[in-house]
Amino acid sequence: MTNQIIPSVKRRQIIELAESGKRMDGRSLTDLRKVEIKTNVVEKAEGSATVKFGDTYVIAGVKFEIGEPFPDTPNEGVMSVSAEFVPLASPGFETGPPDENAIELARVVDRGLRESKLLDTSKLCLIPGKKVWIAWVDIFILDHCGNLIDASSLASLCALLTSKLPKAEVVGDEVKILDEYAPVPLRAVPINITLAKIGDKLFVDPSLDEEEVMDCRLSVAFALDDQKQEKICAMQKGGVGTLSFEELLRAVEIAKVKSQELRKLLPSGEK
């Protein structure tokens, strides 16, 4: 029963603090935790990055492999995003195949990267209909202290932004991979911001305590389109609670402002 009582005490405390605009870790409702990004942390990967949001710690790696395109897009490379909630990251994580939470996380990250058209898959084709580059993006959660979606999105993004694509020579039906690299063809950069709803308040970048007692969360990704106009490119509500229409639109407005703030922290040279 304790696991029901502690959250309800915690929830009351979080709601009371929020009345005066404060949070248990000292942040305001719209503050992000300290974000740290390190890139090229794994030399054997074609791209890699670790991201910390406070104590939340995530690593993402990119590997390129030659494979077959999907039949309906014979001239395009493939991107695949997976997430592992490895057991060292939380007492609640168990070994075994990805559960619905890991699958949801990977698909939300994937949607942000895909809908922003970050990766120019048309430039990843080697032999149309036969051989294309597959970009495998693998996310490992290393320490779960809340807001895995934003940390994982940012880690995947930074791993892709700093990844290098092997050069390849096509001779007939053969592809020879050369010992040289080119930058990965990238376009618009998506930034994901998650807010938790607790009571009638919205909390940017929720901590684990806040996630445990939240009604629901909303994740919104923003990217610049071809005209450099900022657009929403992906969205996901998670959790069992409800949102009013006013809360939904307010959350999207806050997320937009926060995404601009997070965008400034990207590795130099990226917008």
């Binding site: 949607r111 809908e115 922003s116 909303l218 990217a223 929403i232 490119c233 969205m235 509500k237 939904l248």
Partner: peptide, 8 residues
Amino acid sequence: IQMDGLLT
């Protein structure tokens, strides 16, 4: 609520 694609 879920969304994908580009919208202002």
